[in-house]
Design a binder for these strands. Structure first.
Lengths: 356, 356
DNA sequence: ATGAAAGCGCTAACAA
DNA sequence: TTGTTAGCGCTTTCAT
C-alpha cells in the first residue's frame, strides 16, 4: 500500500443556506422555501429569480433541518449481513420499488446479526420515516415498542404483530418441499446444516427450537426434525457461522469424523455452497452426497454448481416491504402479513443415493 | 402472496424530546444535554435523576436535531450496485473499520451506476460528515465541488485530486499479470469482456478508452488492448451489463456467431462467472476456453469453479477508505492516494490452449 | 403574492 | 454546579 501526496491543500467551503439564496434573489426565506417545495403562492418572476440564485450558489436544502418540522423522506433498511446474496436481493428489490416515490432508501448494515438492534436504533435516530428490518435478532416486545414510533416492516421473521407489518417466505412449505424431495429420492440419512446466531449460542439440544425460534432457519430446522422423526430416522444437526467458508469448515470437519449421510439439507444457499466445497474437494459428487440449499440465489443456478434449492424471491420480498411501508405512510392503520410463495428448483446436486 | 390482517390497530406514539426528559427529571434541558454527551459539570445525583428519566421515557436523542449544531457522526458510503460481491466486500471492510469510532456508516445504494451522482447528493443532503464513493460515474469537477463541502474518499476510480482522497487497486499491474499469464500459457486468441456503463454507452470503438476512462474497467481494457496490439494479435472486445446473467447472454451470443478464442479475460469475476455459464452449458472446459476474472471474490475459489482471478482485497480497500476519512475528520488537509496491491491467483480455469 | 416570526429538538456560550 | 438563552436551517402559520 503506497501513500502518495496528491497535491496542495484546498480549503473547505461552507455550504450555502436558504438565507444565502434569499439574499441573492432579494426575497424572503419563506419565498425560497415555497419555491423549493413548489408550494402555492409564488409569482412566475419570483420563481425565476429564486431558481437562478439556487443554481448560482449550488444550493441544496439540508434534510436534517427539513425533518425538524416535517418528514425526512427517508426510509431505512437494516440487514444483518451485507455479504449475503439473498439479503442483497432484498435490498435490490426494495430499491427498485422505492424509485418513483419521493422517498430515498438508506441501508444500515451491521457486521453481526447480534448488532441488529443497534442498527435499527441507529436508523431510527436518524429520523427515517419508516423502516424495514430483515430478520432482526431482538425480542418482539422491543420491536413493538420501536414500531409504535416508526412504522416498521419485518422481513423474514415469522412474528406477525398488530404493531408492524411482516413479509415472510413460506418457510414451512419450503422445508417440506425439501424433505419430500429427498425422501422421494430414497434418502434416509439426511443431515441438516444451519446457521447459528453469532453471539447467542443456540440451545445445545436442537429439539429446543421446536418450542422457540421464529426466524427462517429455526422454522426450516424445525420441519427437518419433525419429518425425520416422523419416519424414525436419526436427525443430525450441525451449526455454523453465516459465511460460506465457515460452512465449509464445519461440514468438512463433520465429514472427517463421521460416517457421511447421503444427503444434506442446508439452511440456505451460502451454507450449501460452502458444504459443496468440502464435497468437491473430496471428490464426493451428488450420487454420494446430495445437497439442497434454500433461497435460490443467482449462483445456485450456475451449471458448475447446479444446486437444488428452494426459490423464494428476495426481490419481491424487498418490493413488498416497500409497498407496505408506503401504505403505512399513507395512513393504513391495520397491520398486514404477506407470505411469499416458494417452489423447489430441482437441479443436479440432488439425486438418488447409491445405497439407500 | 396472501395478505392477512394481523389484528387490531395500535396508535402511534410521539417520541419524547429532551424537554420531556427535563420535566420528568425536574432539571433544565441543558442539564439533560450535558448528561447525554457526558460533558463536564453535572453532579452525581443529577446524573442519576436524568438517567432514570431517560430510561423511564425510553428517550433517544434525534440525530437530525443534533447535527443542526455540530456533527451527525454519520458517514455515508455510496455503491453503484448492491448485488456485487466485490462491492459488498468493500462495504464489509468499511463497516469493520468504523466499529470502535463514534461514527456510524450508512449505505446509499443505487440501482444503476448512472444514478451515482444522485446517490452521493442524497447522502450529502442527509448531512453525513464524510463520504465514501465507490467508482462514481460522474465528472471530476463535480466531485471536486462536492468534496470541498463534504470530505470524500473515492474508491476505484483513478482520479487523484487535491480535493479528495483516493483508494484504488493496482489495475494496471493486475491487467498486466493477466495478460502475462495468458501469453505465457501460449494464448494468442484472447477476448475481453467488459462492463458497459448502463446509460452512457461507451464509444463504439474501444480504442477510444485509451484516451479517456478512469474507472477500473477502462484501465483493464486499456492494458488488454495495448498488450494485444504489442504482439500483433487481434483484440476482441465485448461489452455487457454488470449482472452475471447479462454477461452470460453476451458471451453466449458471441460464441454462437463467431469462432471462439482460446481465452477470455473478463473485467471482473461476476462477468467471468457469467461467461463460464455459457462455456459449461456448451461443454467447453478450460482446455478449450480459459477464463480469467478480476477481484478474486469468495466464489472464485470454489472448487467447482476454480476461477483464475486477480486478487485485490475489497475488504482492505473498505478499511483504508474509512481510515482516510477519519484522518480527514481529525484535520488532515493534504489529499492522499492509496494503492492496494494485487496478485494473480492461478486456478484451474486457465490452462494451455489445445492448438496455440 | 409576499414576508415576519414562531418553532422543530438540540447544543453551547454565558450567567447565576 | 446549574439554568437561561441564542441560535442551527428549514417550514409554516398568519399578517400585510
Amino acid at each position: 500500500m503506497a501513500t502518495i501526496d496528491a497535491g496542495e491543500r484546498i480549503p473547505r467551503r461552507q455550504a450555502p443556506t436558504i438565507a444565502d439564496v434569499a439574499r441573492e434573489a432579494r426575497v424572503s426565506r419563506a419565498a425560497v422555501s415555497k419555491v423549493l417545495r413548489n408550494a402555492y403562492g409564488v409569482s412566475e418572476e419570483m420563481h425565476q429569480r429564486v431558481q437562478t440564485a439556487i443554481e448560482q450558489l449550488d444550493y441544496r436544502p439540508r434534510v436534517a433541518a427539513r425533518s425538524m418540522r416535517g418528514s425526512s423522506y427517508t426510509t431505512g433498511l437494516e440487514i444483518p449481513q451485507i455479504t449475503n446474496d439473498f439479503l442483497t436481493m432484498i435490498v435490490h428489490g426494495a430499491l427498485e420499488a422505492i424509485e418513483g416515490t419521493p422517498y430515498r432508501l438508506i441501508v444500515g448494515p451491521v457486521t453481526s446479526p447480534a448488532d441488529s438492534q443497534q442498527g435499527i436504533e441507529s436508523l431510527a435516530d436518524r429520523q427515517v420515516d419508516a423502516l424495514i428490518s430483515v430478520v432482526p435478532l431482538t425480542d418482539r416486545a422491543w420491536l413493538e415498542r420501536m414500531s409504535t414510533r416508526t412504522p416498521t416492516v419485518i422481513v423474514g421473521s415469522h412474528e406477525a404483530s398488530p404493531c408492524f407489518d411482516t413479509v415472510v417466505g413460506a418457510d414451512e412449505t419450503g422445508a417440506h418441499l425439501v424433505m419430500d424431495h429427498l425422501f422421494d429420492l430414497g434418502h434416509r440419512h439426511i443431515a441438516h446444516l444451519t446457521r447459528r446466531a453469532a453471539e447467542t449460542p443456540q440451545p445445545a439440544d436442537p429439539r429446543d427450537w421446536l418450542q422457540t425460534g421464529h426466524d427462517p432457519h429455526d422454522i426450516r430446522g424445525r420441519v427437518y426434525l419433525e419429518r425425520m422423526r416422523e419416519r424414525g430416522y436419526t436427525p443430525i444437526v450441525l451449526t455454523t457461522g453465516a459465511e460460506e467458508l465457515e460452512a465449509r469448515a464445519a461440514w468438512s470437519e463433520f465429514l472427517d469424523t463421521a460416517d457421511h449421510p447421503t444427503a444434506l439439507f442446508a439452511g440456505n444457499d451460502t451454507l450449501a455452497i460452502g458444504a459443496l466445497r468440502a464435497n468437491v474437494e473430496r471428490g464426493l459428487g451428488p450420487e454420494v452426497i446430495s445437497v439442497v440449499g434454500y433461497d435460490n440465489t443467482t449462483i445456485a443456478s450456475h451449471p458448475a454448481l447446479s444446486l437444488t434449492s428452494v426459490d423464494q424471491s428476495g426481490h419481491s420480498m424487498g418490493r413488498e416491504s416497500v409497498r407496505l411501508l408506503m401504505e403505512r405512510l399513507e395512513g393504513r392503520k391495520e397491520s398486514v402479513l404477506v407470505e411469499e410463495p416458494v417452489t423447489l428448483k430441482v437441479r443436479s446436486s440432488t439425486t438418488r443415493p447409491r445405497q439407500p
